[in-house]
């Protein structure tokens, strides 16, 4: 629940920083919620392998006869369910508090529904790469930023287009295509990354 709390705190700070002017907040609401959710997900990313690494469970996973990529796919799903799903539940509330038009809410939710699994998949691949290092929080943000840029652009682009009453399907379709690709490739890449980082 920590990421949810974090997202609420960050989103709450924006009106204090920018002033309570409704028009301004409404215009940036979609982007603020997207970035907030991304940062909150990043917060939990560093811990994805930490526990398993510390108690040796990761070794048992690596050495079991099951395909590692399938085990990691399960780990990615678990991360999304535990971290992203609660964020998806509070995101509409945060967007509403910031004054996003109700008509745009479904687009924001759809954008988050596509962007959060994509971030989870890519983020865990990068986390696996840092598994052999001691502290990696800051490094992980640096590594994730270039991958997050297109995701944020397309997700926020769809929300922005919907706010202006323009067609918003195209950027979401790109996100969906990227997600379909990542669903297949990310677990394999993650298995490779983990074996590199743990030197096996």
């Amino acid at each position: 629940m920590l990421p949810v709390l974090y997202a609420i705190i960050v989103a709450t700070l924006f009106p204090f920083a920018l002033g309570p002017e409704h028009a301004l907040l409404a215009r940036i609401a979609g982007g603020v919620v997207l970035v907030t959710v991304l940062l909150a997900m990043l917060l939990a990313l560093d811990n994805v392998f930490r526990g398993d690494l510390d108690d040796g469970a990761l070794e048992q996973m690596l050495l079991s006869p099951q395909p590692l990529s399938v085990l990691l796919a399960a780990r990615m799903l678990a991360y999304w369910l535990v971290t992203a799903l609660p964020l998806l539940l509070v995101a509409p509330i945060l967007a509403y508090m910031l004054g996003l038009q109700p008509a745009v809410q479904p687009v924001l939710l759809l954008a988050l529904l596509l962007a959060t699994p994509l971030l989870a998949l890519l983020g865990i691949v990068l986390t696996a790469l840092t598994a052999g290092t001691r502290r990696s929080g800051m490094l992980l943000s640096l590594m994730l930023l270039p991958l997050a840029v297109p995701i944020v652009i397309f997700a926020a682009g769809a929300v922005g287009a919907a706010q202006q009453g323009l067609p918003w399907i195209a950027p979401l379709a790109w996100l969906a295509a990227a997600l379909a690709l990542a669903l297949v490739l990310a677990p394999l890449a993650c298995a490779t990354a983990l074996r590199i980082a743990l030197d096996t």
């Binding site: 840092t130 590199i196 980082a197």
Partner: peptide, 19 residues
Amino acid sequence: GLYHAFDDPRQGARAASFL
């Protein structure tokens, strides 16, 4: 950054290469 985060330069080089 990833290259230098590893104690073993060879391991760091491989991880950073993957990145």
